[in-house]
């Protein structure tokens, strides 16, 4: 474990560019550059990190989705003119250059709930079979006191002992008629 950590740490140190400037911020930005390539950093995003996430609560990510390739650059030049001259295809291409998925796409239902419920029910049915197996092969039979006549005898004894005579079971028993109060 410790050896793995040391190896990982060494690898992280070795991969820092050798000619990185001394200032921490400049070093970080050059590392960030290796992650995001030539993509423009265009905003704050949701936490200030230059990362792309499609989120409904922070609709504007920090970087553009596509790197500025030559055809994207050409579209950007055309974008500076009147937007009425853009065709629908060009408009969609411009959107896809800045953003990965539309709201309708990243909020589309995945149907994952079906597999979740299905797998859960498989485990539940397995547990029921295990219960019956234990019942059949492991547990001893229920004690005598669970039989119908034993439980009736127990109730009779509770009534004879006048258990809970004010609000409970004996208060509902009519001792003169020897039956439940109507």
């Amino acid at each position: 474990m410790a050896g793995t950590l040391v190896a990982l740490g060494l690898r992280a140190i070795r991969h820092v560019p050798k000619n990185a400037p001394l200032q921490a911020s400049a070093a970080m930005s050059s590392y960030t550059r290796t992650l995001i390539g030539k993509r423009e950093i265009v905003g704050f995003g949701f936490n200030g990190e230059p990362s792309y996430v499609d989120r409904a609560d922070f609709p504007m990510p920090a970087i553009r989705w596509k790197e500025p390739t030559s055809d994207v650059q050409a579209l950007r030049e055309k974008e500076k003119g009147d937007w009425k001259n853009l065709s629908v295809e060009e408009k969609k291409a411009l959107y896809r250059a800045s953003f990965c998925q539309t709201f309708a796409e990243f909020k589309a239902p995945t149907g994952e709930w079906k597999s979740l419920i299905g797998i859960s029910l498989i485990f539940v049915s397995g547990a029921i079979w295990v219960f019956y197996a234990l019942k059949a092969f492991v547990y001893s039979p229920l004690p005598e006191s669970f039989k119908e006549e034993n439980r009736e005898a127990q109730l009779r004894r509770i009534i004879d002992l006048q258990v809970n005579p004010v609000q409970g079971i004996a208060s509902k028993w009519d001792y003169e008629k020897d039956d439940w109060k109507k």
Binding site: P59, M60, R76, E79, K80, W83, L86, K91, L94, Y95, A97, S98, F99, T102, F103, A104
Partner: peptide
């Protein structure tokens, strides 16, 4: 001059 931003706002 950011068309995509405008569409994103509407969405």
């Amino acid at each position: 001059n950011d068309f995509a931003l405008a569409v994103r706002i509407l969405e």
